[in-house]
Design a protein around this nucleic acid. Sequence first.
DNA 1: CTGTATCCCCAAAGATACTG
DNA 2: CAGTATCTTTGGGGATACAG
Lengths: 122, 122
Amino acid sequence: MKYVHSCMIRGDGGRTLRAILDQICNKWTLLVVATLDAGTLRFKELHQRIPGISQRMLTLTLRNLERDGLVSRTVHAEVPPRVDYELTETGRSLLEPALALAGWAIEHVPQIEASREAYKKA
Amino acid sequence: MKYVHSCMIRGDGGRTLRAILDQICNKWTLLVVATLDAGTLRFKELHQRIPGISQRMLTLTLRNLERDGLVSRTVHAEVPPRVDYELTETGRSLLEPALALAGWAIEHVPQIEASREAYKKA
DNA sequence: CTGTATCCCCAAAGATACTG
DNA sequence: CAGTATCTTTGGGGATACAG
């Protein structure tokens, strides 16, 4: 696993990697991907399941994920409109490391908050 | 692993988790943590190994990591000053999911860039 | 060497209103 | 329902200078 570190520091100076990483680790992307773990969801369902996200940011995040080939978008010719979003094969492959990171964060929330409290007092 | 998703969406509305996740997924944190995979490093060594980071951002990132209990900071009473940074036990536990995500990003860089190209043309 | 202290900028994100 | 358009805000991050 050490090669990861090498690749990050060397190569193109980590620029390409950081660009991808920035794309993944922005405010909403991981949350949207994790939510799509549930399967195919329409726009409104995503909007409801992700508290605090605005319509605009959900749209932008989904467009970027679609552009990167991580999410597929299916428009159904119906009235009212219906658009389904689903993880692609690549998107599902991101699920594992993404959920691992999210899991780590959840597990360590109490510890980190305790550390922050201790830091404030010192 | 489904419980991760549940926790993210429910609970406090995912606010606490997102706060932690934001802290981890900012521009430099993952890179600093990954760099400290190499072991104990002093300020200048970190600065050299992370291309593009400013002194200010390195300091801020390290302070946050220290506050969160992920990095330990040791000041040696020497002239010139010497400060060593090292991952704590908690910090090292972040290494695995962090490197997994970085590894995923590296593996999928070509694929994502190809998808972006295809998207542009369409 | 290892940092603070300032100033500044801009892109990301929010709010709101409107539309096919 | 599923967006787009527009405006505004904010704070993350860069550059620079200075300090212990």
